[in-house]
């Protein structure tokens, strides 16, 4: 059980993030959920790369156990991707706020439906 502690944390974060992503209708909260979800994956990669008592992979006669550095490199890339996604998501949220005056998903949907209803009522001339 204790040996799997890090995996339990990973899965908890993963599910919590995914839940926020699905359950919240606020666009910013959704992005928070997405970030937590993506962060949990960083743990999934990083944790198995660490060996207890292992050092950085620099060849030296004193050490025989090395930790795997590759997951760190991969996750560095994944963090950059995550930041880019979050930045783009926030930028879109700002634009949506400007266009709709709201960042609540249900209000935005209601406004779209209202527009469709008025469009159908008085079809704009060509």
């Amino acid at each position: 059980m204790i040996g799997h502690f890090s995996y339990i944390v990973t899965v908890f974060l993963m599910v919590a993030g995914l839940y926020i992503l699905i359950a919240c209708s606020n666009l910013i909260k959704k992005l928070v959920g997405l970030s937590i979800f993506q962060t949990s994956v960083y743990l999934l990669y990083i944790v198995p790369g660490k060996l207890v008592g292992g050092t950085a992979p620099i060849i030296s006669p004193q050490y025989t156990v090395y930790s795997n550095p590759l997951p760190h490199v991969l996750i560095l890339t994944a963090i950059v991707v995550g930041v880019a996604t979050l930045a783009l998501g926030l930028a879109l949220a700002v634009r949506i706020r400007e266009a709709y005056g709201s960042i609540e998903e249900d209000e935005i949907l209601a406004r779209d439906h209202a527009v469709i209803a008025t469009e159908a009522a008085n079809e704009e001339p060509l």
Partner: peptide, 17 residues
Amino acid sequence: DRRALTASYQYLIMGSI
């Protein structure tokens, strides 16, 4: 159309998942 923004946002969420 402003609905392009919400479409893009929705795709961003689904695509990132």
